[in-house]
Write a protein that binds this DNA or RNA. Structure first.
Lengths: 198, 198
DNA sequence: TTTATATGAATGAATG
DNA sequence: CATTCATTCATATAAA
């Protein structure tokens, strides 16, 4: 069980960083495979490792940017305000378990860097799809189905393309409906596979 | 004050997994509501949580399933991937015993094809009198359909002529219980030919 | 040893 | 459904 988590070898890390530096951010599955294949020359590695690496690296890269930005803003805000940048964290450290919430979550907009040229990998993924449209936290407590969702005859659709409706009463009646009285029995809902389809 | 994202309680998770295990994949809004209603007995939860849970679970399940199958098409399709013949050329196609473990792609095509004996697709007559999807909205405080979902009174436009209802894809190895329902099985017909990335 | 941080892994939430 | 992103969990490692 304690299968240790992957840890990039210096070589692997160097390559990954280089790719990242060259602009690779969201490698396609194909790219991930190839990268993995290559990196496997330097040590055991799986595709998911590469996948996660990029995912994390990008995310943390942006977080860092956000933090820096925050510093600047605060600095300007309180210009002569003895506020050692290095202290900033401490200020938030006190209460919020999550610092850097001061900035719009999607702050450093995803920038699709241009890939200079033929490094080792080029991203051919259609760029320009920066969805950085601030996704506000729609907190309406009531309706909250995904955006383009449509309820069609009890079917939840997310796209107006296919409309193969799915239905069937797979859910046993035992499941209390919101509008019904919740079950009062201790009888757990079909925890175990049972007559669901009965 | 971003409300922390939902995190399933052990009970909720168990139930969800169980339903999933039984074959539920794309619950209808009605089902989602019912499930939500039930799960709310074990903790705060909204419909969208259930909705997303199934979506993500299904997606990631397939990603992992992808791992199982392999050794097929690949290797020799080096080309369009702009992989400058540099070293990244996975000369090592081999040893990475676990290549292709994960990589977000539409690999395991959603082929609902043959499942020994469980109906994959059922046709259901338009149950025009849907009684389930529109009503909820009661005290539970929220019929929370994901965000921007457009709810059109359970019914919507589109030239809906026949409602082809698709039974959830049963997991090949899932509980063998099956057919014996009022629904009648029909022949399968691929929902669509999952286009491979171009 | 305890605490803090870096980072791999996982998953909820969206969007198209 | 494929992708992407934000959060969070978990743990290896560095620092106190």
């Amino acid at each position: 069980m304690p299968r240790p988590r992957w840890s990039p070898t210096p070589q692997q890390l160097m390559i990954l960083q280089d790719l990242y530096r060259q602009g690779l951010r969201n490698p396609t599955s194909s790219q991930v495979q190839k990268i993995t294949g290559h990196l496997s020359l330097y040590g055991k590695i799986q595709c998911k490792n590469v996948f996660y690496w990029f995912q994390n690296h990008k995310a943390r890269d942006r977080q860092k940017l956000r933090k820096e930005m925050l510093h600047k803003v605060q600095k300007n805000h309180s210009d002569n305000d003895h506020f050692p940048a290095t202290q900033l964290q401490l200020t938030a450290d006190n209460n919020s378990s999550n610092i850097l919430d001061y900035f719009p979550a999607n702050f450093p907009p995803t920038v699709h860097t241009l890939y200079p040229h033929s490094p080792s990998i080029l991203v051919h993924q259609a760029e320009g799809k920066d969805t950085s449209s601030a996704q506000m936290t729609n907190n309406m407590g009531n309706v909250d189905l995904p955006k383009q969702c449509v309820i069609e005859n009890g079917m939840i659709r997310t796209n107006v393309k296919s409309w193969v409706l799915m239905m069937t009463d797979m859910i046993p009646n035992s499941i209390p409906c919101c509008s019904n009285k919740p079950l009062q029995t201790l009888e757990l809902f079909p925890i175990k596979a049972t007559g669901i389809r009965e």
